[in-house]
């Protein structure tokens, strides 16, 4: 069996990479993708904890996270399409006014 610590470290690395991607990318869609990456990293930690504790709760949380992520993607991508339609750009730096 692979030690739980390995999974946790991997999860932390993926989360960190997600944060980096979030900070460095300039395209709204890619920024959104890095949020998904962070959620995935957290899911990995959940499943690893579920395996370590011998209970299924962790896996259940993952299912809920996936549901929330799906809802978030639907609304988020709707917003992205709206921004692209109104601003003709996907660069976050050009989306700097509160009004349309």
């Amino acid at each position: 069996m692979v030690p739980t610590t390995y999974y946790i470290v991997l999860s932390a690395i993926l989360f960190g990479l997600g944060v980096l991607a979030f900070l460095f990318k300039r395209n709204i869609i890619t920024i959104f993708m890095s949020i998904e990456l962070m959620l995935n990293a957290v899911n990995l930690a959940f499943v690893a904890f579920s395996q370590a504790s011998g209970k299924l709760d962790g896996q259940l949380f993952v299912l809920f996270v996936i549901i929330v992520a799906a809802a978030e993607a639907a609304v988020g991508l709707g917003i992205v399409i709206l921004i692209a339609r109104n601003r003709q750009t996907l660069n976050v730096e050009r989306v700097d006014l509160l009004k349309l």
């Binding site: 739980t4 610590t5 946790i8 932390a12 690395i13 960190g16 370590a52």
Partner: peptide
């Protein structure tokens, strides 16, 4: 970001042991 990675990893790994 590297510091964040290390911090999250150590904290979670320690709590995994208690789990």
């Amino acid at each position: 970001a590297l510091a964040l990675m290390g911090f999250v990893a150590t904290t979670l790994a320690r709590s995994a042991g208690s789990f």
